[in-house]
Amino acid sequence: MILKADSISKRYFRPTGQANYFEAVKPLSLTLASGAVTVLMGRSGSGKTTLLHMLSGLLTPTSGKVLLDETDLYSLKDGALSCLRNEKIAVVPQGRSAVDTLTALENILLPWQLCRKNAPVERAEHWMEALGIAALRDVPAKELSGGELRRAAIARALCQETPVLMADEPTGDLDDENTRLALSILKDAAKRENKTVLIVTHESEARAFADEIWKMDGGTLHPEQ
């Protein structure tokens, strides 16, 4: 499955300052191939997360299109786009991304239970085991640490079984060992399951797991040499 950004840009209205808008992402085009890990790097405020949100169907671009194969994401109505996000594009967002009233396992299965049938409990347990959080299966999310929550979010995205997986700073709260583990699992998923994987990160160690590296600077995208 190919995810393609066609001249997308994002402007935010800004009432103060020299200009009355701020261009977080300048018009750019990008194609993410399946079976490959694309790493997007750049300084804070360079527009990485904004780009990821636009590519994942969470943020409508000011201009341009995002195509998943032939489907223009933002031409879909909210119900259809939500459904597409659930079935085709898994996202690991920055920060806490768990429902506190649910356990770790329930959080991982939530995308299935929310929109689909027959939640794959064994598969969820497999990813928890792989990410070293199997013992936290029935622990409420509110009791998990930042690193545990991050791994639970990665497990949820993997368990969602989507052709596209995007992760925003997936190793932000992890130690070196778990950083390598998480990145290798994502790389492995891309290869074995032919997933399209996009990782937005500051982590230089991610370079080792990338098939393609892009760098963002001031809202523009450059391939890293």
Partner: peptide
């Protein structure tokens, strides 16, 4: 988070 994982 619910929106992120597909809640309309």
């Amino acid at each position: 988070v619910l929106r992120l994982i597909g809640a309309s």
